[in-house]
Design a protein around this nucleic acid. Structure first.
Lengths: 100, 100
DNA sequence: ACGTTAGTTCTATAATTTTGGAACAATAAA
DNA sequence: TTTATTGTTCCAAAATTATAGAACTAACGT
């Protein structure tokens, strides 16, 4: 389930992005323009259920769109929606240096 | 204790701002250009210790500067430092509509 | 010196999040 | 149809965070 554009919450978006793993994932999805979970190499670092959890947080906060494509999920950033709701926010975060 | 400019962490900053109370506080400090804790009317809503906790999170993430002024603390946003580390981020958040 | 103001720290509890194992779908491919 | 592949969901444990009462500290005014 994906939240509607008009129901995005800034605290929720910020919380989703405040996790280093999720922040990294978002940057990578953005860089590659849409990836599956495994293609993101998450499963080398953590079990599937944990990765799935992080993707769920990103989806439920409205940051990513997940669409089933055969056996995988294609993840894309909801850039337009985020830009519409919070202008400049995503760009600032995507362009920020890796501080962690 | 305030973190140095070169040691600000994006996930940490995002986490600090992902709490609705703290987000509101930051906006109010920015709007008024520097306020004490009580002037922020936090204590009407919550006990002192809780407010103090939130201010500590904001301070330790590098978002606010707290300087003792007699018996109070003057809280200001570390705008220059944040702009320097994460260009556009704070503006995007400060200008974002109140979604909560 | 005394009380007041403003806020911190200590401590504990409640709430939320993260992590991960195991069982479970759904699709694809042999 | 069997077997992988890709991921989800369920569950419980671990870790983090939020909340708040109570005692404490420091500065100011009287």
């Amino acid at each position: 389930m994906h939240p509607d554009v008009n129901s995005l919450s800034l605290p929720r978006v910020l919380h989703a992005l405040s996790d280093p793993v999720r922040l990294k994932v978002v940057k990578q999805i953005w860089r590659t323009g849409g990836q599956t979970c495994t293609a993101l190499n998450l499963l080398n670092d953590m079990p599937k259920s944990t990765a799935s959890h992080h993707f769920r947080v990103l989806r439920e906060s409205g940051i990513i769109n997940m669409s089933p494509q055969g056996t995988h999920m294609i993840n894309t950033i909801r850039k337009d929606d985020l830009d519409h709701c919070f202008p400049g926010l995503l760009d600032a975060i995507l362009n920020a240096p890796d501080t962690e």
